[in-house]
Design a protein around this nucleic acid. Structure first.
Length: 607
DNA sequence: AGTAGCATGAACGGCCGA
DNA sequence: TCGGCCGTTCATGCTACT
């Protein structure tokens, strides 16, 4: 039963117990105020015992929350059946089913139970009464929401108080869920009389998908993995030059359970204080490479192999600030005597956003935000949650566990915070800047849109985390540092070094996005940097000649730092998670190429 | 034409019970 | 040991609007 609350934050919640208590409350409150559910109470009361009451109430509660939000009951039943216990999906379905309900209304001449109900507080239609009568009359409702719908179907099909045949009832049930009667009928024929509702729905969904697939041309829809060209060639060259190993499961680099890397300043977890780098990996220059920790299988093996077999350091920024950010870092920096940026950033949500504490429900036990991404939750979602919360106000105490779970899931998914009574909202851009360790308004101005600010921030370093790793450079370069910053973004590396108090003598920054370059340039000017900032648009511009020129002009790079595009690696990408050979993430090989060039040019200058 | 808002799963690893 | 469940994730592309 803990599947709804398997998270670390929810161990104290007992589904059944809590439900029982709340259910009683809700049913009591509900039935006095909602005519639509009178029939529910009637049948609850006439049920077959205690189990019946509580499990029927479970469904009442589940449905009630939507009724109070103003959704017609038929849509609710339909959405529930299609989406099971998934509250979010149910809500989404409710919002998109209106058109379908219209069509159901057309069918209602044949079936009076399909009459739409658009309001919860008007005198309820015949449909609502009869539908709920049928649905709720039996005693086999499980308090587990997983089983509620199946139980409903079983109860429904028992037909103890109905004159309709089993098949007719199933048809009506499916029709009420929004499926065309014809499709439902076909599905029942194909799946057989014993088929469960889930099977029938699966069948109809599959049929629908098949129809949609037919609309496409079968041949040219396959995505091209890679356009080939120089990157593939370069990859092959690398493969032949470096020692080659097949990527197999057994040598896949495991992600540590606690992502503290070689240590974090805030945890009293034993930390590694020394490591031995492969001979090839030792600088100069120092280098620091970053990417998402949760990349597809084998990616970190490949990256490690191309970066001198250095073991990646996996660190979650939740140990540094109030937001998670699981990243892997491959670098050849010393790991002794690191120190954190001061002041230490707020490490919990409440510390970071003290004003939200007032509105934070006790059952939202989050102390850290999840990974900040490139886009934010929609206003519509925030409003759905507000409405759901408001609906729950009618009941004393907290929302039912299932509502809590829905809201928490969405809050976790979109990093929503409580900003008012029953009100959640996505983080503002300046709040994201703060969480990531950038100065306020770092990305503001310069012609960048709000949407692009989120995108640029979502793609950047967590400054405190990176600074902790780079802190060892402070004593090594008291007179300043020359940095080659690849894929600079909004300048996370530069900001980190600056905040560490390491003078930036020469910074060669490579960044594709013009607005990001402007942001770094603007920051550079505003912080009165005395060094030189040279920026380039494309890593491809950095060939041997240019690098030689740059190295000769100021005596070499002390640090080559950057995180190549992650968009083909991250789990957030539903479209093109193609791994290291993806269109953008293959730029990793340019990081390797440039690092190799810098190393070899610098070693040639030393002899 | 440019922008903002929105809907769109899958892959992965951890966990737990059979 | 294995299978199922669960939580997490530096995003992409369509649509409506200005």
């Amino acid at each position: 039963m803990d599947k709804n609350f398997s998270g670390e934050d929810n161990d104290s919640i007992d589904w059944d117990t809590e439900d029982e208590l709340e259910i009683q409350e809700i049913t009591d409150t509900t039935f006095s105020s909602c005519t639509n559910l009178r029939s529910v109470r009637r049948h609850t009361v006439s049920g077959h015992g205690e189990a019946s009451t509580s499990s029927v109430s479970c469904q009442s509660k589940f449905i009630q929350q939507f009724i109070v939000m103003g959704f017609p009951e038929e849509s609710i039943a339909k959405a529930i059946e299609q989406n099971g216990e998934n509250e979010g999906l149910v809500l989404d379905a409710l919002l998109t089913f209106k058109a379908l309900e219209d069509s159901l209304e057309d069918q209602s001449s044949a079936s009076p139970q399909l009459e739409p109900c658009n309001s919860s507080d008007d005198s309820s239609s015949q449909y609502n009464e009869s539908f709920l009568d049928d649905v709720y009359e039996e005693d086999s409702w499980s308090s587990d929401s997983d089983n509620c719908i199946n139980s409903a179907k079983r109860d429904y099909l028992k037909g103890e108080s109905s004159s309709l045949s089993e098949k007719e009832q199933t048809l009506i049930f499916l029709a009420n869920m929004g499926y065309p009667a014809e499709e439902a009928s076909i599905a029942m024929e194909r799946c057989g009389p014993e088929a469960s509702l889930a099977e029938l729905i699966d069948f109809m969904c599959a049929a629908q998908m098949a129809r949609e697939d037919d609309a496409y041309l079968p041949e040219d829809v396959k995505p091209k993995l890679n356009s080939g060209g120089y990157k593939r060639k370069m990859y092959n060259e690398f493969c032949t030059r470096k020692k080659q190993r097949a990527i197999s499961d057994e040598e896949s680099i495991p992600l540590p359970k606690h992502m503290i890397g070689f240590g974090v300043p805030t945890e009293s977890i034993p930390r590694m204080v020394q490591r031995t780098l492969p001979e090839q990996a030792i600088g100069p220059p120092f280098f620091y490479y970053e990417n998402v920790a949760l990349a597809p299988k084998g990616v970190w093996d490949t990256m490690s192999r191309f970066l001198y077999d250095i073991e990646p350091e996996f660190v979650d920024s939740k140990y540094f600030c109030a937001t998670a950010r699981k990243r892997g870092y491959i670098h050849n920096l010393p790991i002794e005597d690191r120190f954190p940026l001061l002041p230490l950033p707020p490490r919990t949500i409440h510390e970071a956003f003290p004003l939200t504490k007032k509105w934070w429900p006790s059952w939202d036990t989050r102390t850290k935000l999840n990974c900040l991404q490139t886009s934010i939750g929609s206003a519509r979602l925030a409003d759905r949650i507000r409405k759901a919360m408001k609906a729950m106000e009618n009941f004393d105490g907290e929302p039912p566990a299932i509502v809590q779970k829905y809201i928490l899931d969405e809050c976790r998914k979109w990093n929503l915070v409580w900003v008012g009574r029953n009100k959640v909202a996505p983080l503002e851009t300046d709040e994201v800047e703060m969480l990531l360790g950038f100065p306020r308004n770092h990305t503001r101005g310069g012609g960048i849109s709000r949407t692009d600010r989120y995108k640029s921030l979502g793609n950047s370093f967590q400054v405190d985390t990176v600074a902790y790793h780079l802190s060892v450079l402070k004593d090594l370069f008291p007179n300043g540092i020359n940095v080659l910053s690849l894929f600079s973004g909004i300048g996370g590396a530069e900001v980190a070094l600056y905040r560490l108090g390491i003078p930036l003598n020469n910074v060669v920054s490579v960044e594709k996005s013009e607005v990001n370059r402007n942001i770094v340039r603007s920051w550079w000017e505003q912080t009165n940097q005395r060094g030189n900032l040279i920026d380039f648009e494309d890593v491809l511009q950095l060939n041997g000649d240019l690098l030689e020129q740059l190295i000769d002009s100021f005596g070499g790079f002390d640090l080559v730092i950057g995180g190549s595009p992650c968009n083909n690696l991250t789990g957030s990408n539903r479209v093109s998670r193609d791994g290291l050979e993806g269109k953008d993430s293959s730029l990793f090989y340019d990081y390797v190429r440039i690092l190799d060039l810098v190393k070899s040019i610098m070693s040639s200058r030393r002899v």
